[in-house]
């Protein structure tokens, strides 16, 4: 599983859901600072981490991603004061759906990421990739 292309082939494929106003600038900042992370990591932008639907996470894991990372707004969310709790609920619901599919719950990870958290982002990616690489490959249920 998780085969990518080119040099990314050896690294786990990670899909990051990130928010337009808060974590995207942090991830973009990693770019402006030329901080490297694996090319097998890609991002989809949402307005708020509370809008991520559990089924998207499941879909990504069923269709070739090895891990899904939710970059959440935490206390910085401009829309929803309880964004943290909502995002945690989404991650938990996605995991509920993964259980019967035999997909490891550790494939979903969540952390708050701010608009200048470029270093933190790269660190999260490195750690998550290492954790995913160590997981046993699931066999189809």
């Amino acid at each position: 599983m998780g085969a990518g292309h080119g040099a990314g082939a050896t690294s786990p494929r990670i899909l990051v859901f990130s928010t337009a106003n808060i974590s995207d600038p942090g991830i973009d900042l990693a770019g402006s600072q030329h901080r490297h992370y694996a090319s097998s990591i890609s991002t989809i932008t949402v307005p708020c981490s509370s809008s991520i639907q559990p089924r998207w996470i499941v879909y990504a894991l069923e269709h070739g991603f090895d891990g899904v990372f939710l970059a959440i707004d935490g206390d910085e969310c401009a829309y929803l004061p309880d964004c943290n709790a909502r995002s945690s609920r989404i991650a938990a619901q996605a995991q509920e759906r993964l259980r019967p599919l035999g997909i490891a719950l550790e494939r979903v990870r969540m952390a708050a990421l701010c608009s200048v958290c470029s270093e933190a982002f790269v660190k999260h990616m490195d750690e998550f990739a290492a954790q995913l690489a160590a997981l046993p490959v699931e066999v189809a249920a």
Binding site: H5, G6, G8, G31, R35, H36, Y37
Partner: peptide, 25 residues
């Protein structure tokens, strides 16, 4: 589609990987 801040600049050490990722994006 962001292939600069989220691709070329962070994978400047991995041209095949960056190209594959950009294609996907």
């Amino acid at each position: 589609v962001n292939i600069r801040e989220q691709c070329s600049w962070v994978h400047s050490d991995d041209r095949p990987g960056a190209t594959a990722k950009a294609t996907g994006l």
